[in-house]
Amino acid sequence: MSAPDLSGLKGQPLPQRPAFQRFLGSTAVSIAIYVAVMALIIYGSFTGAQNMGYNWQWHRVPQFLYSFTEDGFELGEIVYGLFATIQLSATAFALATVLGLLVALLRLSGLVMGTAVSIGFLELIRNIPLLVLLYLFYYVLGPIFGFDRYWASILTLAVFHSALISEIFRAGINAVPKGQWEAAKSIGMSTGQTYRYIILPQSVRFMLPPMTGEAVHLIKSSAIVSVIAVAELTTIGRNIISDTFMSFEIWFTVAAVYMVVTLILSVGVSYLERRYAVDQ
């Protein structure tokens, strides 16, 4: 057997992309383009605001975040609004998770009734706009069952997101191999025990990324409850604006606060994900 004859010098460089493409693809140029575009947008919006005679008053914004009085350091209204948003979202997310798990288990139960009920629920929720669902809970179901606007908003968010979360659970549960069910059965576990000790712990790994997305989604959609005047971040932002007329500054601030919270959540979960990935 003879060695293949490939002519060429040892260490000969491979052909490169054209110089122009290399220039555009380099990190420095990418950053420069990014900075230029961002600067253009910011410049445009500021001059636009100037032209309509908007009076920027950024110096008045910090007092709504924090202040120093005789009593010492105090948190501002926006921070309390944020706490309310977090509380509202956390409660709704917990409820949505429980409800989502129930719907997913019903769907996977193999019972004809169970499947029908869960599919019916999914289609109903998925095909009603969130705002209409909120009005239904507040104006219709609220008076009937006697819950207030706070619980109407929690229930709306929980029910709306439980539909999406149940699909995440279903996918996560189905991603666990069938052999795990058989092994658990063969040592005498009941269906409930199999879910609790074998299937769900393994599906957490598959569900963490989409569940984080869902939590972020829920925090953002919680802003909609401001239309029924539940005191949370967006409502408080609106109230501050009607007192101060600083709509540009406050909306920028409120948007930034939402972003900070959801970014922290995403980063925290991707850390968790890496930890879960290690011991598998």
Binding site: G179, Q180, A183, I198, Q202, Q280
Partner: peptide, 10 residues
């Protein structure tokens, strides 16, 4: 005892 072991990986 299964062909694919089916141990609980977690």
């Amino acid at each position: 005892v299964f062909q694919q072991f089916n141990l609980f990986p977690h």
